[in-house]
Design a protein around this nucleic acid. Sequence first.
RNA 1: GGCCCCAUCGUCUAGAGGCCUAGGACACCACCCUCUCAAGGUGGAGACACGGGUUCGAAUCCCGUUGGGGCUGCCA
Length: 448
Amino acid sequence: MTSRAPRVRFAPAPTGSLHVGSARSALFNWLYARAVGGTMVLRIEDTDTERNKPELIDGILRSLEWLGIDWDEGPIHQSERFDLYRDAAARLLAEGRAYLVDADDQEVVGDRLTAGLAVRYRVPDEGAIEFDDVIRGHVRFENANVEDPVIWRSNGTPTFLIANAVDDVDLGITHVIRGEDLLSSTPKVIHLRAALGHTVLPVYAHLPLLVNEKRQKLSKRRDDVALWDYRDQGYLPEAMANYLALLGWGPPDGVEVRPMDEIIERFRLEDITKSAAFFDRKKLDHVNGEWIRGLAVGDFVERCGPVLAEGPWPPGAFDATAFAEIAPLVQERVTTLDDVPGYVDWLFLDQAPIDDASWEKAMVKGPDAAGLLDDALAAFADVAWDAESLHACLLALGEARGLKLGKAQAPVRVAVTGRTVGPPLFESLALLGRERTLERVRAARARL
RNA sequence: GGCCCCAUCGUCUAGAGGCCUAGGACACCACCCUCUCAAGGUGGAGACACGGGUUCGAAUCCCGUUGGGGCUGCCA
């Protein structure tokens, strides 16, 4: 083992909240580092002082933590390292490898950084840059096709290109794992590294892009890209990370939904796919549902805390004990945490909510709603109040009218819970209690 | 337009010349289970973009075409 210990870096720019595509890049860097015992460096690319929003950095860090991604070094802020980039840019300029340009992009004579003037690195006319990308294979850019990159802005700040070239070397980065959208900037950075005296290249791995249904790169403008939004919509961090890992990579044994440590064990950079991957909400839902069902009940209850805290019931109406009892039945039915309140709201509301479509279906179009409710009212008055007895009771009421239980339970379900869909009815009634149940059945009967 | 990247079911992918009458997963359809809805079970439909090569043999290698995407900013 004479090779360098791998060092990777995730380098977000603080211009917005963490983007799912960026989160995926971070995840792949992290997976690689953890898989090979390497070092994960977090670097904040805040070279553009005009667009950079420092207040967003904390959110980005917390997003990574939420996903379960940690880092060994950093965050290193490029905004605190301008001296390094300034020295590099000044040196290239002094050596004649870069030149000054004015606001109209016209070359200006001079060999030192000058206020109000930007600096472009002069890419040679001849030759080409070639490198082997772990994912793409051999890539070659003719110098004639590479434009002279701006490395220093006229406002006295560096661009990411020079910062990249300097920092990747300075931080000893051995593997550059990032989105394919950065592929065409790679030859520029390689030129800069070489001009600064560093000819040994890091291993490059350009990840396939995440795209929308029209197969365009996921964009802040038109797509749901904020990682935070997924958290707010009730996706579990484990499910999100698990799903993200599946975009551009797949475990050799085909088992897709699994703990991250198992993914780390199987992750190999060279197994990453080349083509863009569609961010499929449907599959995310499936993965999330699997993760939710796999939670220990107590854990599930705990994670429901936030959505339950703002449920559609009066403040103080929430009953943690009652919820804990019905939680197992809810857990196996929801796909996101956000679905939970809709399954239990009737338990905490004073009266049954009324879902018009459900009412129409069970009370208007369904058979014998009035008769069934009357029968239930009478029978519920003194039936033993437990799920089993209630089940037998309603089954008998239905049979008396020639109805199967499926039909017979519908009016009661809607009367009590407001909807045709919900947790198992008899357990629900048992939990609600005789008085509240009778009250709701009476109210529904009166409303018919 | 120029440069670069990509191309297996609708989607995510397996496949690294014969194991492929192309496998799995999501979604979809049917059936089973069933107090609703889910979950679960069983089955089904569904793809190697096209054209040339190379080879005894190609989804797999090469070339071209077509299609899609990225970049083309004193953003990253």
